[in-house]
Computed example of a mutant assay.
Amino acid sequence: MSSELPVLRWGIIATGLISSWFVKDLALSRPDAKAKHIIQAIGSSSSEKGKAFAEKHLPGLQPTIYPSYEEVYNDANVDIVYIGTPHAFHKQNCLDAIRAGKHVLCEKSFTLNAKDAKEVFNAANTKNVFVMEAMWTRFRPLTLALRKMIHEDKAIGDVRRVLCDFGLHQDIAALGPESRLKNPALGAGSLLDIGIYSLTWGLLTLDAGTGTTAQNPKILAAQSLESGVDLASTMILLYPNGAQGILTSATYAKSPKPFCRIEGSKGVITVEGPAASMPTSFTVEPKEGEVQTHDFSAPGMGFYYEADAVALNITASKTEDDIMPWAETTRVLELLDEVRNQGGVKFPHEN
């Protein structure tokens, strides 16, 4: 068996903030790396933008810069395409990359709705390529350890209630009409941008299952809208055993560092971090016994955990990941669809 790390050559689509975080993390030198990641190509709306992106975020590296996405899809030296465009473009970007025979890692939310996601997965199945939603939070060692502690070790007994909030002060009113945070045609609103994380924490902590093995909770939702965009969303999940998830997102103010509280029959767990997307520690407070804090600080931001998982999956000739399988992406989007159905948000292409 070879001890060499698998090598994955990435083509990066779009040069916004999320793409900058992703490539900087992939370029980090890590002793525990499970794969070698090469930023092979960058696609942008212009060569100048692509070159400036590479110089700023990948100093000393020389990826191929393309003034279009299509050239990235057609580059024979690119194994996988990372899609960091606004939500509304994800479906078409995925379909174009898949058509070119490329593997895909696409930012969340994977598409605007479950129907579009199913279309992408059907295309991937036909082409036999690996596709995954880039829900990076699920791949963090903290998340995996927390899930084990809750569902296998029963550290706080039976989970009865979970509260999670992801709030950012985004000052939506001050943004221009074409901002991805303000334009409904781009999937704007707190729900798909940050509410998806609050929902994810509810699902991860209330249910040991994933995708086809998960339960289907009832959902009650309300949204505060302005010009068709949700400034705040609230979701209540109700499970058959009576457990509840109260999950919120808002653009009015930043959440405090303890963003999630998991209440069980034998104690409480509090999860902390700069944001619900980036947990760094959790504290277990049992009704009997010592309070314990588990710290999971790591270099960079932690996008490399999902990237390593992708590389190992592709090396194993898998088209789906066990942590974020296609059925789980679809299930999350179906829940988000229902939140919007109850809350009143409809995207232009759905009319």
Rank of each mutant, 00 (worst) to 15 (best):
P67V: 04
R147V: 11
L336I: 02
V131F: 01
L225Y: 00
I13V: 14
N128G: 05
L203V: 13
V78A: 06
G195Y: 04
P177M: 11
L312D: 01
E178L: 12
A307M: 02
S29I: 06
R138T: 04
S68V: 09
G245A: 09
V81Q: 00
L336P: 05
A33M: 04
Q223P: 10
Y252Q: 13
L105N: 05
T330L: 15
S3M: 10
V268H: 02
L186K: 15
A253I: 08
A88R: 07
D96R: 04
S198R: 09
I323D: 05
P31H: 11
M132T: 15
I65A: 03
K102Y: 00
T111N: 09
P325W: 00
W136S: 14
V120A: 00
D207P: 03
D308H: 02
R30Y: 09
R138L: 13
G176Y: 12
Q244L: 11
L206I: 01
S249V: 04
T137P: 14
A33C: 07
L105A: 04
E285H: 12
P31I: 10
A298K: 14
I323V: 12
K218D: 07
I38L: 00
R99C: 10
H90S: 09
E306T: 15
F303T: 03
N216R: 07
C106F: 09
W136I: 13
V271T: 07
L26C: 10
A208Y: 01
E334P: 08
K182D: 01
S20T: 00
A243N: 01
K287I: 08
V339F: 06
K254C: 11
L220T: 15
E55M: 02
H37V: 03
E4G: 12
L95V: 08
E48A: 11
H87I: 14
G209I: 06
D25K: 00
K148G: 03
G16S: 08
K266Q: 13
S2M: 03
L58H: 06
A311Y: 01
R331Y: 14
C260Q: 01
G167E: 05
P141L: 01
A114W: 10
D153H: 00
E178M: 12
S255C: 09
V23W: 03
G101Q: 05
V271W: 01
G245K: 03
H57R: 06
V271R: 04
F259C: 03
G209K: 06
N74E: 08
A185W: 06
V310D: 11
A174P: 10
S249W: 08
N122R: 11
Y82W: 14
I98P: 10
V78Y: 00
E288Y: 13
Y305T: 00
T329D: 04
L144V: 15
N125F: 02
L26I: 01
Y197Q: 15
S281L: 05
S255Q: 11
L225E: 13
V7P: 07
T205V: 08
